[in-house]
Design a protein around this nucleic acid. Structure first.
Lengths: 289, 289
DNA sequence: TAGTAGCTATCTCATTTTGAGATAAAAGAT
DNA sequence: ATCTTTTATCTCAAAATGAGATAGCTACTA
């Protein structure tokens, strides 16, 4: 059974004539005859009355019902891929905790407002496991720290964060080695790229091992810093958004350690679903990159 | 876009391999490649990741969603026509008032029990207008008095009725001409074949015109006969079913006038929809013809 | 009832598409 | 590195398709 044949059947039903149907679909009448005949052979039933003006038989009407449904789905699928204002289906995103907390809400909101037919799922996790998810095909795109150098993947720089040292008391300068040695650090669980920066900071001071507490959420971490439990390293914008709720202080870090870029990593653009392509559009607009 | 291609895409998604997909659908791997490639060109998006084991891209997954819907509808349509135990869609029947009242209820009930997915509509009317409806394509089959001699239509004899003269008082024999001349006749509206029999009866007595009242429903008519308003002519089985409710009496008529057959008339069997074909099956069983 | 106008079925043929096999190229496994 | 498995490409024969020409059918008209 060919979609073409069904479309011809619909045209015949509409126009009540093989010639008019042919004209409507820009073909010739003999082809209409052939297609309808083939359908009739395939289904073993006469679909069209040929006495005088043609009319669908009851078998034809029964098939017409399916033809309409079939072509509606087909046209919908085609429209999805053809017109850039369409997006539907599902979109599986992944993001780091901090990006999710501060950068994504307005973007997700804007996307959902424009493309309400997309079912979004967003999971958070550290950079390493997000990349794994992406490569396993369990996510369509992930927000991670740092670009991926792989020709099958595409990295779009979307945010630039400046990391700052967060402490419970004001500081004049980056703490000395001695101070750091005795200090406690709070960080997200292993795999988080910000934690790697903490270790980088410590390494730059010649310190290899130090006590590090692990947290799962931002609020818990900042609460503990404010309570004097220790230091942490976070994006400036993240800290500033929460500063009014916690009695915390920040200190600039050396730029090689401080500057970290967030990328949106996906498979090659050619493989993007319409939903994903529209998401990247939204991202470009909202993040202004 | 070809249904074949979509089916291949589904097989690829399922098996995760072009070769396995080819085997599953009894074709060769090169054809799978070609079909998928054609889909990709048509939609302008890569549908399948070719790194190592093949996997659908997010665009592929989006299309897969439509492919599944499309093929489900297609298979449903095909199953409808292929397997004789299926029937769906609509069935538009027409029937004479008397047949509807007495013969059809058990048949319609049996049909509906077996094929609940068919939307039945039944309209009643006199033979003439039912035939018109059928010919105009507004009905799929009609129960009428007498066969149709037309090579585009098919008449199936389903019931044999014996017409009797119905009167308010007992009769020893068919009323004489003088009695008939002064009598009033009650009948369905013009077009009803039973009414033609009344006129035939009168003509056999050399009477051309007589007073005839027209009624739309059986109950009204029988009620008026019982009340002594006049005579009527109806199938014996119809009268017997109502005799206990009305004080009426019957009298046999000459067999050439009395015997009348009810036919189920449809377009040619080749044009029957599955729903109609199953109805005729049911009819043959229930009516035992 | 013959004629005519309008439509559909059939036939033909050039073109395109399809399907299958063979082979080359690429990716993983040992 | 070699071998195995899988996909892409090429080729060719067979089949399907689309368009035109023509014959046949139906309904309407005079």
């Amino acid at each position: 059974m060919q979609l073409k044949s069904l479309r011809l059947l619909m045209a015949v039903a509409e126009t009540g004539s093989f010639m008019a149907a042919a004209k409507q679909l820009h073909t010739v009448q003999s082809n209409v005859t052939t297609h309808i005949k083939k359908l009739e052979e395939e289904l073993g039933a006469q679909l069209v009355h040929r006495a005088g003006g043609v009319r669908l038989t009851s078998a034809g009407l029964a098939l017409l019902d399916y033809a309409e449904r079939l072509l509606a789905v087909h046209d919908e699928a085609l429209a999805l891929f053809k017109s850039p204002e369409n997006a539907a289906g599902q979109l599986r995103l992944g993001s780091m905790e901090t990006t999710m907390a501060l950068r994504l809400p307005p973007i997700l909101a804007a996307y959902h407002a424009n493309f309400p037919d997309v079912d979004m799922t967003l999971s958070t996790g550290p950079t390493a496991s997000l990349i794994e998810k992406l490569m396993a095909g369990q996510a369509d795109g992930v927000f991670v720290a740092g670009a991926i150098d792989h020709h099958r993947y595409h990295s779009l720089k979307v945010f630039s964060e400046q990391l700052v040292l967060v402490s419970p008391t004001p500081m004049a300068s980056v703490p000395s080695s001695e101070e750091l040695l005795t200090a406690t650090f709070l960080a997200f669980r292993q795999g988080c790229s910000y934690r790697q920066r903490i270790e980088l900071l410590l390494a730059s001071q010649g310190i290899n091992a130090v006590r590090v507490f692990e947290f799962g959420t931002l609020d818990a971490m900042l609460g503990c810093v404010a309570a004097g439990m220790g230091y942490t390293v976070l994006p400036r914008i993240t800290v500033e958004a929460h500063r009014h709720r916690f009695g915390i202080h920040t200190m600039e870090l050396p730029s090689d350690i401080a500057n970290i870029d967030t990328y949106f990593v996906t498979p090659e653009p050619a493989t993007w679903s319409p939903a994903l392509a529209r998401f990247v559009d939204t991202l470009r607009q909202e993040a202004k990159v």
